[in-house]
Design a protein around this nucleic acid. Structure first.
Lengths: 223, 223
DNA sequence: CAAGGAAATTTGGTATACCAAATTCTCTTC
DNA sequence: GAAGAGAATTTGGTATACCAAATTTCCTTG
């Protein structure tokens, strides 16, 4: 199989199963059983579960089986709220500290997104959008900031999967990206912060829609 | 011995050893040896090392012994930069969302600090100051925010230990705390944000001093 | 028939043993 | 004597076996 360490591979596998709905929210994740299913031992499975817990996909409980977390809208909103603050900070710092090359990298992602918007899968687009955000966080030249931001981003896997929608927002998204890049190029911190905040506000709105749709069509079986 | 799970106890023990200088930066943390020293097995030691890695005290390397991280000033500064952003956000949100009771809790910590400033140990004071900050993060009513903030705070163990100094700042610190509480009570988001930012800016300045002093008196033996 | 308790099973926590990759030391050879 | 190759040792990764706490089920008793 693929790349990376064994625990990471297991985490990837479990993540897919959770996101695809094979392991609905509330399902206990018993390290014994799942380890046996995948033909690995409990030790790496244990670490994999910790990884998923850090991402918020499973919920650890003392002296109890971890369970698959429920994707409450509030949590996603909270995540985005924090992420927005970090990205706004990133934008401001990037205006001060980023090299032109780093800004070029951000622009490159935006360009690629614009080029491939119509040919790409929706999930691919979300992925691209996320790497746009990641690039901004990196351009702030603060590794702690980039790392923290990336951790929050990782927690959005679930929303990312759900939000395989909204292809219609094309013009607005591309426009916002362009605005952000332009502000960074101009080293205009105020504008950059505003555009980033606006972009993420819209992301939240999109996700609200997705959750509304999801809630109406199928009520979860498990509390 | 004390409370908590075994890995946490081990992590606490290792953390103390690192902060006390028994394990200077650059020292490899071999899970076999340390496990034997503490009379525990490698499994919980492994997890303990991961905890310390998450706190930034040790540095994991692929296919290599983890080593005790060097407390570079830049890293601490980066941490505080991010923490400041989160706390400023917390202050703003707290003005909107916090209950009066939650603000009372913050005020209570500030009061206790004022009461005990002269009798308390410097480390205790730092601890109190930190719980003041933690209380603000909690008052924002965003668990993700509180959790992320707490994680950053945990990374400051080292700086916390070093900054067992600056007792002279008494008036300024207490004044800033009072300003923050007052702004929160008045639900004045702009003022609250400004005061929080100012408070953390001063914290950074203090730590600059500590690092300067530390660098001049003893140059680290290990790269 | 219901309620309480005890025993068995389930499950995570911990210890130990084995394995593979990487480093280092030594022996050989030029 | 230096350099390179190989072997042994070091070290983290993984598997397995054992243990203790908690839950659940079933039996007993009122």
């Amino acid at each position: 199989m693929g790349e990376g360490t064994l625990p990471e591979q297991i985490a990837t596998r479990l993540r897919r199963d959770i996101l695809r709905g094979l392991l609905p929210p509330g399902t206990p994740v018993k390290e014994r059983d799942h380890a046996a299913d995948l033909g690995v031992s409990r030790t790496p499975m244990r670490e994999a579960i910790r990884i998923l817990a850090k991402e918020g996909l499973v919920q650890l409980r003392p002296a109890r089986s971890p369970i698959v977390a429920k994707p409450s809208f509030e949590e996603v909103a909270n995540n985005i709220e924090v992420m927005a603050a970090l990205e706004v900070l990133s934008a401001r710092l990037a205006c001060q500290r980023a090299s032109d090359a780093e800004i070029d990298e951000i622009a490159e992602v935006a360009d690629r997104m614009e080029r491939d918007y119509d040919t790409f899968d929706r999930l691919d687009l979300f992925e691209l959008d996320m790497s746009f955000h990641r690039a901004i966080a990196r351009a702030a030249n603060n590794p702690v900031l980039a790392e923290t931001h990336a951790a929050l981003l990782a927690r959005l896997w679930r929303a990312r999967y759900l939000s395989a929608s909204r292809k219609r927002a094309r013009e607005r998204v591309l426009r916002q990206h362009a605005d952000i890049v332009a502000a960074l190029r101009a080293r205009d911190a105020v504008a950059a912060q505003a555009h980033v905040q606006a972009h993420l506000d819209h992301l939240l709105v999109n996700i609200v829609d997705v959750f509304d749709a999801d809630d109406t069509e199928n009520t979860p079986a498990v509390e």
